[in-house]
Design a protein around this nucleic acid. Sequence first.
DNA 1: AGTCATTCCTTTTTT
DNA 2: AGGAATGACT
Length: 725
Amino acid sequence: MDLLTGLNLQQQQAVIAGLGPVLILAGPGSGKTRVLTHRIAYLISHMGVSPYHILAVTFTNKAARVMENRVAELLGDASRGVTLGTFHAICARILRREADALPFNANFVIYDADDQLKLVRQAVNDLDLDPKQHQPARIHAAISNAKNELLLPDQVPINNYRDEAMRRVYQRYQSLLLDNNGLDFDDLLLYTVFLLDNHPSVREKYARRYEHVLVDEFQDTNLAQYTLLKHLASFHRNIFVVGDADQSIYRWRGADYRNVLRFEDDYPQTQKILLEQNYRSTQAILDAAMAIIDHNPQRTPKRLFTERGQGQKAVVFEAFDDRAEAGFVIDTISVLVARQQLQPGAFAVMYRTNAQSRVLEEAFLKANLPYKLVGAQRFYGRREIKDLISYLRLVHNPRDEISLERAIHAPKRGIGDKTLLELRRHAKQVSLSPGELLLELGSNSTSAQREYFKGRSLTALEQFGGLLYRWQILKQDYNPQDLLDRILDDIDYHSYIDDGSDEGRDRWDNVMELRRLAAERKDQSLELFLEGIALVSDQDTVEENANAPTLLTLHAAKGLEFPVVFIVGLNDGTLPHSRSFDDPEEMQEERRLLYVGITRAEERLYLVFAQNRAAYGMNEPAQPSRFLEDLPQDLLANSQPKRSQKQAPEHKAAAFRWPSDTQRSGKSELQQKFHPGMRVNHPIWNEGMVLNSRLQDDDEIVDIFFEDVGLKRVAASLANLQIKP
DNA sequence: AGTCATTCCTTTTTT
DNA sequence: AGGAATGACT
């Protein structure tokens, strides 16, 4: 089989690169996944490397799955056995295997962001710190940063009292995690690095095994991940990394694109290969992307080129507010689907913050159009799902107090705060975890522990403990779905959650969805099922089958591509986000974020901003994104929006004006009033949307798609068109 | 013990 | 505007 046909010269070089460190700098759409998969196939089929000796690391399960499937397409069964997964999943696997050398058990649970915050809150409480002054969320972020930098509590730099407090919380938080036999996301990396640091024999075992280490999205690695890779590749030093500094958008998570430079320092004999040809987008889209990213200082300029032709210019659309943005998106999609045989699934709508999805969703619902929302948190964060997962977790790891507390209250079973406190207190005295004590009470009706609890609370505790005990026994030979069914039945969760209201029905539907997910992985152990749930990424929830537009954050869009891309909310304060204003590094990252969004588009690109934007429920005038100024006029299909000058607050109302108003109030020369996407009203043909408009012979010629009568061409001076907000 | 009201906080982005 | 944590009330 020829693994090189269809690849360009640079791609071929990358695939057949010799031993040693290899660095692939891959622009967007340059076929890096192809290079990675073909490289793996090449190593196996041409270099005689056993799949067992190959490790490929990605950031999302989806990316891992795609690679796995593509390698399997190339090689069939011969590809079986490659270690392929996300950083976090691979670390979890190692930690379970090596748990004997670690301060926790192999059946640890992985806490999600919610649980982590709860634990930080508890730590702050335990230390008698004022949560107003030491905000748990901030401390949690600081702890996460420290962990990503491989800093233990006693290594955290201390400059002031706040740092001191954070250090103490960090310390306490870690011991709480261990009490619960739980790890947070960062721990997975941190403990693995320390394991490999401190146990040379373990390190050597893995380093010898992995003759070849391949890494996707290398620019997103943080210090912990970088160090981990270094350890894993320390014996054979065949490390093949693919990345693009311009697409580095996870700085806040500790990612450091400078790892690309560090790589060349750490591995002086690195072979470096540039992939610049783009196979995804039209030149017009690439030009817009380059116009944006070229404003970032200190980067190696790249010339992205394509053979896909010039294509259509990007459209900039100015909407009244975020609802009008959504209206524009929906109208444009409707028209393009109606007119041009573009599938609904060809569209993606991207935004900076999750909160922006709400308005879009409402608009889609109101228009009765299906859509796909990307985001795992949306599902797994729901109360009913968290409830049930906490039961499963508790069965798997009775030391998990966070889950115990949740499960014991859902549904209510006569165990209140007081009883729970008693349970905790006494558990501590007999050095058990509350869960373990509960199991003892539930399984042994003559237990000596009984006498420490009285009457009603004892009965309630025994009852719940009994349930827990039975589930523990059942889990031996039940699969996750059967266990879930049993729990649902035992606690009569249906009648608890579904009160007959719409919301209740909805919640029960979600429970059934969870059940379906469990059924999908029938042959998985409870442990792996829970791990899979803890480590789902937003991207993993991208649905490929449903033919509907995709709604997703710019972050979640990385690695994906769509024929038509809308980027909405292109306002200062949203993109770039206001939290980035005072830090040049962060502003550069905001710019990269826009770059990532633009380069997702294959054929058409719509850049949408609003004159007014809601913040905390209040609608306020907003400025177009400063990034829009960096797009030269000739790259755009319509005229460039102007940022209004800095205004005194009392003049802010000017920003509400439509372009047509500004015109009337002064300028003599004719300006284009209508832009693609605008909704207009015609005295006879009623409502329609502008598809195209141009100036001609002292008039404006506008193509409009009317809902009632279809496509019409009119002269603006005669048609008496009203622009609709 | 459990329900209801009030307050306060949130909004970056995610494994 | 909406959700969560806290606290008063039944």
